[in-house]
Design a protein around this nucleic acid. Sequence first.
DNA 1: CTTGCTACTGAGACTTAGTCTCAATATCAA
DNA 2: TTGATATTGAGACTAAGTCTCAGTAGCAAG
Lengths: 168, 168
Amino acid sequence: MPTIEREINRFQDFLARQGQKLTRERTALVREIFATHYHFEADELLFKMKQKSLKISRATVYRTLELLVKSGLVRRVHLGEDHYHYEHVRGDSHHDHLICTACGAVIEFNDPELEKRQLEICARKKFTPTFHNLQILGVCDSCHRKGEQPASPDHVMSIGEGAMRLRK
Amino acid sequence: MPTIEREINRFQDFLARQGQKLTRERTALVREIFATHYHFEADELLFKMKQKSLKISRATVYRTLELLVKSGLVRRVHLGEDHYHYEHVRGDSHHDHLICTACGAVIEFNDPELEKRQLEICARKKFTPTFHNLQILGVCDSCHRKGEQPASPDHVMSIGEGAMRLRK
DNA sequence: CTTGCTACTGAGACTTAGTCTCAATATCAA
DNA sequence: TTGATATTGAGACTAAGTCTCAGTAGCAAG
């Protein structure tokens, strides 16, 4: 299914609407982002592009990610580490994250009941919500079986390694 | 009510338990943190100490904040900006945040129903939670009256200015 | 299918938030 | 009072991300 072409079209529409252009670099980035799944970091994306010998500068990667977030094609999330992660959005599958502080696993979940309760809270506080971000940190099932301890608060400070990193 | 002394004692107990010492600098920081309310940034704290001509280095501020988080006296939170904020913990008043993307206001709320639902979700996923972090971004009542628009996704990228900042 | 206005790109300097190092100093148990 | 050891400050360093500007590329109009 050539859905990626559709995402590229959507992006082009978004860009055209504000007099912006769809470039070779932007197309390549959208292709990469929608071809692979799961959460990624900006530097990771930069690295992958480099591996494919598509030389795209750091500035362009960051600029394009910003545009993609604005267009709604990509979501920017906090995953317990001290920098952002990104994930592509297909359809309207909103979800939040359970994050294992032992192995770094990220489990997605969607719970309409929870969302509803959040709206009720907002209504009570006369607050007009547009977006939310929920991370639950803890220990996943398999780590729990291995006897990993429920983390103490300091685990919140820094969670295991992400994927490969790159700089220069 | 001289509660601050009690917090200092708690901190000292925590430190003593691992052979660490309560120093002049640490005491001064705890005093400052518990004397003022609301969320603050590390640099803001550094600045305030400098204003009071208590010269405490950046390194010590960060190191002490880390200890305070580990001890449970301080909580480290994300407030929609790209760096951390801290808030002191008194008793066990857990809460989450509504953040106005127009004026930067932060409204705290606590909803046992919501917490309960989160536990249910964790149980369903066989996940052992230890901590969570929920931010709801949107527009507060007074900004809404002033006709501020519900933010588009790009507002999520950067929210208005925090308090004063300082560097060197 | 050429042109030209304008947006886009890359290289690298810069910024911000935070961490690390190490010699000098302070804490606190004995 | 002492001394072993934890702590501090200054500033170098790092990570993640932003900015600048000259050269390049999209794309709408002709």
